[in-house]
Design a protein around this nucleic acid. Structure first.
Lengths: 212, 212
DNA sequence: GGTAGTTTTCGCCTATGGAGCGAAAACCTC
DNA sequence: GAGGTTTTCGCTCCATAGGCGAAAACTACC
């Protein structure tokens, strides 16, 4: 589960109370029950940590099968990427905490690689999909959206470009409202929302597309 | 396993000799042995059908977990995409055959969806990676490469553009050799090869890239 | 009320990569 | 040598991204 908090991309980690890796930080999850879907299982286990209705997007990353990933027994795991909008602050139990992805502690299993793979997936999809809907609050200004992109991508993003690109692609639409300026003043910002809140791919940049 | 054969993208299918779906066409595969990696397992099961050294690329697609995907029992499956260069003609057993992806028979399980997902993955990666190295023979002309792209993408591709794009990206390099013209004559074509035969991503088209 | 400061937005320009098209190059056959 | 075929190159056009500065719209302070 990733979320942009305090201007940084963070991941929800759980301090293990079980072997193996007792006491180490690890990703939330658990065993698959017979007859269950992987996604059902993930949602069920996450529900023990947070209100899963706050999960705006969930997608499968990869299934890990290295026999040495668990030192005690042979165990497979399917990793998922979940995204939480920045305006929510889920209630989390005592033993879980948000950690900046750029400063991860030692993680159990292969979870460090999973987190980094999740960030890579997110970064890639920010470029050619509308996936930012799952990181953003329902209504936002371009500046707020820009901060999310900066946090997730890890580099500066021009608000000018961001607005132009997302509007031209038809990803965003203006709500017509305006945001009150802060104490420092400034022109009131226009408010936008994502036209769709389901993952959609921009094929604008599909190279070698059909002629015509 | 996908390969471009006779100008069409084809998939290797196996006529099932086991329940469930006895007699139906299905993707090659099998059960995972304890302590085994998924990739090891896949290669092992494919080895029973073809010479796996001919597999130029293998990547994980997705893990399927719908409890209804197998009517008899609860069973997960992890789908892989394998690519075979066009110049090879693997020896296959009696009960397997290549089928054009555009004209699939009824497939067992959710295998039809898997094959289509594999084709989509391939099509997407043809645009922003050098994945075509796994479909192409070691040395080829632009025309030959163009035919592979046409077969895999399902639409026309201009040889002019293909050459320019792949050369500019540094994906291809000229070998210096020339191909003898066919019976009809024509200018002898220059020969090329892929600079790398491992998957590499072209970030040329990463939108919203760092400024500067 | 005017001036300075802040933030957002818009317009203009440039750079880059993709696509189309026609000509030139290099070969064959007759 | 003429005509046909295939490949390759060069020129032009177009769409999108990116940079920069000015204008717009507001607050705060004098």
């Amino acid at each position: 589960m990733l979320q942009v908090r305090e201007g940084r991309l963070q991941v929800l980690l759980w301090e293990r109370a079980r072997k193996p890796f007792l006491g180490a930080w690890s990703l939330p999850g658990g065993y698959l029950e017979p007859g269950e879907t992987l996604e059902q299982s993930i949602r069920g286990h996450l529900a023990q940590k947070v209100d899963v209705r706050e999960l705006a997007h969930l997608e499968q990353l990869e299934t890990l099968s290295d026999p040495k990933r668990n030192p005690l027994e042979w165990e497979l795991a399917t990793a998922y990427l979940g995204l939480v909008p920045a305006d929510l602050d889920p209630v989390v139990p005592e033993d879980t905490r948000w950690h900046p992805v750029s400063r991860l502690p030692e993680l159990a299993y292969d979870h460090r690689a999973i987190v980094l793979a999740g960030r890579e997936r997110l970064r890639a999809k920010l470029s050619y999909t509308n996936i930012a809907f799952a990181l953003a609050q329902p209504v936002f200004t371009i500046s707020e959206l820009r901060e999310l992109y900066v946090a997730a991508l890890g580099h500066e993003v021009s608000a000018t470009n961001l607005q132009r690109v997302l509007l031209r692609r038809g990803v965003l639409e203006a709500t017509g409202e305006r945001r009150e300026p802060g104490r420092a003043g400034g022109r009131p910002a226009a408010c936008y929302r994502f036209r769709s809140r389901r993952l959609e791919i921009t094929d604008q940049f599909a190279v070698l597309r059909p002629p015509g």
